[in-house]
Design a protein around this nucleic acid. Structure first.
Length: 844
RNA sequence: GCCCCCAUAGCCCAAUCGGAAGAGGCAGCUGAUUUAAAAUCAGCACAGUCUGGGUUCGAAUCCCAGUGGGGGCACCA
């Protein structure tokens, strides 16, 4: 069972010997034969002037972290199936490849090795590119791109300027997530459980002036347009995006604030609530302790207490603060708000359970019907007033708030109404009194895009003392990265390394010509990957961001393939970019990916492969041991594409065995090219055409693993026919074997190509035409009908396939066994007939 | 706490519309071939579909409740 002992690991035969070795399946020789051929012939180049119907099949492009690994092997084997299938079905297929080549690892490697990030990056890209070529992805290499190329990031900067011009890229001061280890800010999406997604360091808050994309302006469209993706994207990805956007509808309510003893006027405070129906249950108001609002509201007598409270909070980490069991804390601000409907005086408190950056940073306290408010009220001795009768016990006694449905009580303006009707009426009342209105709030925040790191696209903005923030004119793009920084000069210092390149920073203002400074931050690398699928349309065009005419022809992407780890970040950002680019008038669609497939992970022994577990499997070793085709076949066959593949559960040696078995069939075909399959044995022909018909459905349904199972059956059937049936000269055997090569080419291109050549056909099998199913071969003359009595199988019956319901029923009822059961059951009550396959006799 | 997905043989997994529970593979066993082994070939066995209800002539499939596993969001008002 050890890999090393597997016979598929036979070293390559010297070239030129394969003619003599045709009875031996020699993986290395077959790979060596076809790889250069495809490259020379440009077999997979997508033509612009080809007017056949088009398909754009895209794998999420890789980050160049070292060589390819098992995860790449799975993803790209799976992504190649729809691409190759479309090609066989006669589509003009675009299946490009490139690299997402900006990012932190390159920079860290550069610091460590006293080098420039570009050196590490492009070396890794070269390594991966040659591995990809060997892996025989049917990619169009002429469109290869790297996001770290000037020719690419120039247009990333151009897009930034378009966003900026429309007010969608802006700067603001805000507390932001800060990773102390990477010394850079992070987007909300990059903070997982309070820690940096990349390095795991606990994230702190820092108040900084940063660049943002106004993705929240697109929140509704991002949410609502998911309807058109339903059924074509995995449901869980859509669910994750819905969660992330977190739209909640409710009302904003304005509370006037009672002037303090010192007489100073205070602005009204607006709060957001999803439960305006509980308005009569409000007994207090709480503002976020860390919000400016708290400072504005606190009276002089209580200012000291607020400051002490804030100081105390500073020592509490985010993770601790979010723990559910924490006691409610807070301070009274010495101030009262006026209830907009009752005129009651409501004490205003500050607490850390209210978030400063959601809604308005203030909430109305409804302790009877909100658990958090109830806990706070109990801790502070505040009133609890029940205004919804849910039929549950009094929250005051149980300590459990009743958040469910029920009739409104103690609510004069909507007494007795159920939740929905009460909410509706409450919003009306608020509007009539001019104290509130229906409002929508989102969990989604604007996308923080600036990074204080080197290896990214510089933000094309110049800061001028007289003109302020000035965009770099488009004809001066790209703003190139300075090339004289390397090694230690790139180490994180809490501000961008670009700031150290003084001659780079010093520039003149594009507007007034005076002395000015460049913005020293670079863009989040997710910006780069938010539009690369468009750049693939015209990667060498230096006159425009992408060819808008080509976009009409190719976009949107018909099939996007990638890991579920990008469910929120990349996919949400790419959708956002597409909508903005749509609004810029460059494209006429507003969703980039019509269909999405998530492939699973590759595990080993039930766990993700990792260095610390020591369970890593080296892709190169697997390829050397079993061959590219066997590894690809194993990946596809192991499970449905979206499921994880556990390398400990699968058998690449079994795959290699199957490939050899399939390949040998081609050796045994002795009929000439072009013989009429109609002259061949009928049984095998029926199996063949049934397989083709089924494979068509299986590709559409993305059940790629089952394709392999069907192919194995076909191979078994051909073997049987050759050895114990009509023999290798039968035309049906040739037809079946040719089709085997075609189906196999979806997954194991080398073996398939070689079979195709051995069969005497012109390469490439990848561009051959998909077999036409002969429908007449799919229908049997006779079928087996099952006969049930009360749903239990009691007998079987061979009948003509076109039997009528009446005849089938008569035949079934005439069966002696059935008569026996019918008699025992007390006679026929009803007969269900589904001709020609089933009869169910109901007795009694 | 809220939401999404999943559960079929020792293991990975099939099963169009609700119509015979089993296609394929792995591991296992038997045999042929072989001096032997490998490779190859032929064959065998193993579950009644997580549990409990319901709908139906008929449920792996639909509905309800639960158990177990995976995932997302979460002091978001």
């Amino acid at each position: 069972m050890s890999n090393a002992s597997d016979s598929a690991a036979t070293p390559a035969a010297p070239s030129g010997q394969h003619e003599q070795q045709h009875d031996q399946y020699d993986v290395a020789a077959i790979e060596a034969r076809w790889l250069p051929y495809w490259e020379q012939e440009g077999t997979f180049v997508a033509a612009e002037d080809d007017e056949r119907e088009r398909k754009y099949v895209l794998d999420m492009f890789p980050y160049p972290s070292g060589d390819l690994h098992m995860g790449h092997a799975e993803a790209f084997a799976i992504g190649d199936v729809p691409a190759r299938y479309a090609r066989l079905r006669g589509y003009n297929v675009l299946h490009p490849i490139g690299w997402d080549s900006f990012g932190l690892p390159a920079e860290n490697a550069a610091i460590k090795n006293d080098a420039h990030p570009a050196e590490w990056t492009y070396r890794n890209i070269d390594t991966q590119a040659s591995s990809f070529k060997r892996y025989a992805i049917s990619a169009d290499w002429t469109r290869r791109l790297h996001t770290s190329d000037e020719a690419y990031y120039r247009w990333t900067q151009w897009l930034f300027l378009q966003f900026h011009q429309r007010g969608l890229a802006y700067r603001k001061d805000s507390p932001v997530n800060w990773c102390p280890k990477d010394q850079t800010v992070l987007a909300n999406e990059q903070v997982v459980d309070g820690a940096c997604e990349r390095c795991g360091t606990e994230v702190t808050k820092k108040s900084l002036n940063q660049w943002y994309f106004a993705i929240t302006e697109y929140a509704d469209r991002l949410l609502d347009d998911m309807d058109q993706l339903s059924g074509r994207w995995p449901e869980r990805v859509l669910a994750m995006q819905r969660n992330w956007i977190g739209r909640s509808t409710g009302a904003s309510v304005r509370y006037t604030i009672e002037p303090a003893a010192d007489g100073a006027d205070v602005e009204p405070v607006e709060v957001f609530t999803t439960r305006p129906d509980t308005l009569y249950g409000v007994t207090f108001m709480v503002v976020a302790a860390d919000a400016e609002l708290a400072e504005q509201l606190v009276t002089d007598q209580h200012r000291g207490e607020l400051e002490a409270y804030r100081e105390q909070l500073g020592s509490v980490s985010d993770i601790e603060r979010q723990s559910a069991e924490r006691e409610r804390t807070g301070v009274f601000l010495g101030r009262h708000a006026i209830h907009p409907l009752t005129g009651e005086r409501l004490p205003v408190w500050a607490s850390d359970y209210v978030l400063a950056d959601y809604g308005t940073g203030a909430v109305m306290g409804v302790p009877a019907h909100d658990q958090r408010d109830l806990e706070f009220a109990r801790a502070m001795g505040l009133d609890v007033r029940v205004v919804v009768d849910t039929g549950e016990d009094d929250p005051v006694e149980t300590g459990v708030a009743t958040a469910g449905e029920g009739a409104a009580i103690n609510s004069p303006a909507w007494e007795g109404r159920d939740k929905a009707a009460a909410i509706e009426r409450a919003v009306e009342v608020l509007a009539e009194q001019h104290v509130g209105e229906a409002t929508v709030n989102y969990r989604l925040r604007d996308w923080l895009l600036s990074r204080q790191r080197f290896w990214g696209a510089p933000i094309p903005i110049v800061h001028c003392e007289t003109c302020g923030e000035v965009p770099v004119p488009e004809d001066q793009l790209p703003v190139q990265l300075p090339d004289d920084l390397r090694g230690e000069q790139l180490s994180p210092k809490g501000r961008s390394p670009l700031a150290a390149a003084e001659s780079w920073v010093r520039t003149s203002c594009p507007s007034c010509g005076g002395a000015a400074e460049r913005d020293t931050d670079t863009m989040d690398t997710f910006v780069d990957s938010s539009w690369y699928f468009l750049r693939f349309l015209s990667p060498h065009d230096d006159s425009q961001v992408f060819d808008v005419e080509a976009a009409k022809r190719w976009m949107p992407v018909d099939q996007y393939v990638g890991g579920v780890e990008h469910a929120i970040l990349h996919l949400l950002y790419a959708r956002f970019f597409t909508k903005v680019i749509h609004d810029l008038g460059l494209i006429d669609f507003d969703e980039p990916f019509s269909a999405l497939m998530n492939q699973g992970q590759v595990l080993n022994g039930g766990r993700a492969m990792s260095k610390s577990l020591g369970n890593g499997v080296d892709l190169g070793e697997q390829l050397d041991a079993y061959g590219v085709d066997a590894v690809r076949l194993t990946m596809v066959f192991a499970s449905p594409p979206e499921d994880d593949v556990d390398w400990a559960d699968v058998s690449p040696s079994g795959s290699a065995k199957f490939l050899a078995r399939a390949w040998r069939l081609a050796q045994d075909v002795s009929s000439a090219v072009g013989v009429d399959p109609a002259d061949g044995v009928a049984g095998l022909r029926a199996t063949t055409h049934r397989t083709v018909a089924e494979v068509e459905q299986l590709v559409e349904a993305q059940k790629f693993n089952v394709i392999i199972a069907r192919l194995m059956e076909l191979v078994n059937a051909i073997r049987k026919e050759i050895d114990a049936g009509a023999g290798g000269a039968d035309p049906a055997v040739r037809e079946a074997t040719e089709i085997t090569a075609q189906i196999l080419s979806l997954v194991s291109p080398y073996t398939a190509e070689d079979m195709w050549a051995v069969l005497g056909r012109e390469p490439s099998v990848a561009n051959s035409s998909w077999p036409v199913v002969e429908e007449t071969l799919l229908v049997d003359d006779t079928v087996t009908a099952v006969v049930q009595v009360k749903g239990k199988l009691r007998d079987k019956l061979a009948v003509p396939a076109d039997i009528s319901a009446e005849d089938l029923e008569a035949k079934a009822l005439a069966l002696p066994k059935i008569q026996k059961y019918v008699d025992e059951g007390g006679g026929v009550r009803k007969v269900i007939v589904r001709e020609p396959k089933l009869v169910n006799v109901v007795t009694g």
